[in-house]
Computed example of a mutant assay.
Amino acid sequence: MPTSSAAYAQARWAELQDQDDLDWNLDAISDRSEAIAFLQRFENRLCIYSGYVEKLYSNYSFVVPSEARSGITILPDEQAWHDTFSDIPASAVEPTGIHIMPGETMGQTGLYLKVPGEHRLTASQELPFQQGLRLLIQRYLAKDDFFLPVLVKGDLREYEARMPSLHLHRINLKKLVNCSQLSINSLKSAVADHLIGLFRQGTPGQLAG
């Protein structure tokens, strides 16, 4: 890599380390250790978005400090340029109202999805992860769209009975006006690969570690 390119890359990663868009505060979570354990089940299984640098990361790790009051930092793999997608504007990352929850919130095991109704007056559904994922994929395809879920800062929340849950955002491909078709296809593949991994491991007990 040319010296100028190396210096630019180093400067960009230094800038990334100085911002807090990838630092997740857990002060609002009652059981910090339980929330961290739940979140870690999804490490590299859901892409992470940073609006500060307008990038989507599919290769990263969670850094959990030992201090009791500290949060979690998402550390992208700086060598995995092919797993980092740029020029993703915040306007293209939309909340879905969909939550991933531990089945224990409703006396079950495994992962569950809380899926909002398609219409405002339609009740939401709480479905086993695989069943819910199939429904969402079909729902978006029916609209000539893709279900491309990602996480952003603040998506780790508490659900009923103070159980942790993850709210999902999604990438709206129609708003990626500055991305090439090649980049869009790569992004779709990366998100799909993560979803396939979650789908295969979404049965009870298989996402324990």
Rank of each mutant, 00 (worst) to 15 (best):
K143W: 03
D193G: 03
H82Q: 15
I36L: 02
E43Y: 06
Q79V: 05
P204H: 05
N172D: 15
G154E: 13
Y52M: 10
T96R: 10
P204D: 04
F85C: 01
S165L: 15
I29N: 08
K188T: 01
A92K: 08
I88L: 05
F146W: 12
E94L: 10
R120M: 15
A11P: 00
C179Y: 01
A28Y: 11
F85H: 08
D155A: 05
V191Y: 08
L173I: 13
A11M: 13
L176E: 03
L156H: 07
I48T: 03
L187H: 05
S30L: 14
N44E: 13
G51H: 11
K114I: 05
I74E: 05
G107Q: 07
R32M: 04
T3I: 08
W24H: 09
S66D: 12
R69G: 07
F42W: 08
K174F: 07
H194Y: 04
Y112V: 01
F199C: 06
L173K: 09
L133W: 09
L141H: 09
G205Y: 05
S124W: 11
D27G: 03
D23N: 13
Q131F: 04
S91H: 12
K174V: 06
T3N: 14
V152I: 08
E104A: 13
S61A: 09
E78A: 10
G110Q: 06
E67T: 10
F147R: 10
A7L: 14
S4F: 04
H169P: 02
D145E: 12
D83R: 15
E104W: 08
I88H: 02
E104F: 10
W24G: 02
T109Y: 07
L207P: 00
L136D: 11
I48L: 10
G110S: 06
L46I: 10
